[in-house]
């Protein structure tokens, strides 16, 4: 298995804060990898180091087989970055943006124009091709932004929160583009705050917390870490009163239901109980709220105080 990204022991300190405190990552080539974490967890810093923008204080990182610190030019020839704020030129038109980036990517004038037209078509921007990007909506900008990263089929594409601020339809369109990239052999490294995005898109997910990888695996593996199903108590209006994870055993389920009784008026009229599979949200909250995740306590409850809503 070839690794597209191989980072070991990355550390970065800004002032007195350790943004990254020994980060390890291994991303197999041709896969979609999602780095998940709350705001300020160090997601963008990780991307900045991997894309050669920032030097790590310690540790090594190889991207597409080259050391980001020792051979940044070779790394740059094999990556593209779509950052958090749309990196588009607002004064130029959609076509001009793409042609400029095509020329900077080594395409000839005609080639760059052809490629621009193809990408505009693929991202549903053909009608807006001759309009200045300043007049585009947020979703259109984001699509153009991604198109600018896809002029060449490069080995590794970095996407920093690619769908933040997009409506559901645009988001799903982007997802299908990202999937097709990976199918064509490109490794996609994306950061996101949306668990659904990671769940739907990524082959592997890493949860970043306090500058370290707190958990890593497929979505199913991560969900399995939290143990069994989640018990929910809802009032007559369907409003969530309490939710508790269980460890998947009969004993654990019974303990959870007893706990519901203690915490809320579960006998009140209209109050109902449901059992559901854990979502990635449960995993995320359990992991990023601190401590070791998914360690069921003696009474069979996996850190119920962390996952209780209301």
């Amino acid at each position: 298995m070839t690794l597209a990204i191989d980072a070991r022991g990355l550390r970065k300190r800004f002032g007195r804060t350790d943004v990254l405190a020994g980060l390890d990552l291994a991303v197999p080539a041709g896969t979609v990898f999602a780095l998940l974490g709350p705001n300020g967890a160090g997601k963008t810093t990780t991307i900045n180091i991997l894309t050669t923008l920032v030097q790590a204080d310690a540790g090594t990182a190889h991207v597409a087989g080259f050391d980001v610190a020792a051979e940044p030019e070779e790394v740059k020839r094999r990556i593209s970055l779509t950052g958090q704020s749309a990196a588009v030129d607002e004064v130029l038109t959609g076509t001009e943006n793409l042609v400029m980036m095509g020329r900077l990517s080594g395409l000839g004038r005609t080639e760059a124009r052809t490629r621009a037209a193809e990408l505009l078509e693929r991202f549903g921007l053909t009608d807006a091709a001759t309009r200045r990007v300043g007049t585009y909506s947020g979703g259109m900008r984001r699509r153009l932004d991604l198109a600018l990263s896809l002029i060449l089929a490069l080995p590794v594409v970095f996407l920093d929160e690619p769908t933040t601020g997009l409506d559901t339809r645009s988001r799903q369109e982007l997802w299908s583009v990202i999937r097709s990239l990976a199918d064509a052999g490109t490794t996609v490294f994306l950061t996101t705050q949306y668990l659904e995005e990671a769940d739907r898109l990524a082959d592997r997910i890493a949860v970043l917390d306090n500058g370290r990888i707190a958990a890593e695996g497929t979505a199913d593996e991560l969900k399995a870490r939290i143990g069994g199903d989640v018990v929910e108590l809802r009032d007559a209006g369907g409003e969530l009163l309490v939710e508790l994870p269980t460890d998947g055993t009969v004993h654990g389920l019974r303990a959870a239901i007893d706990e519901l009784d203690r915490r809320a008026a579960s006998g009140a009229p209209g109050v109902s109980v449901t059992i559901r599979r854990p979502s990635l949200d449960d995993v995320f909250l359990a992991i990023t709220a601190g401590g070791s995740p998914a360690t069921p306590s003696a009474d069979g409850l996996a850190r119920p105080e962390l996952i209780e809503s209301k």
Partner: peptide, 19 residues
Amino acid sequence: MTTLVQTRPRLSPFTAEAT
């Protein structure tokens, strides 16, 4: 699969500046 991906070609001199 990896054969489908490409590396950025080296730019001819002053292409970036001209752009």
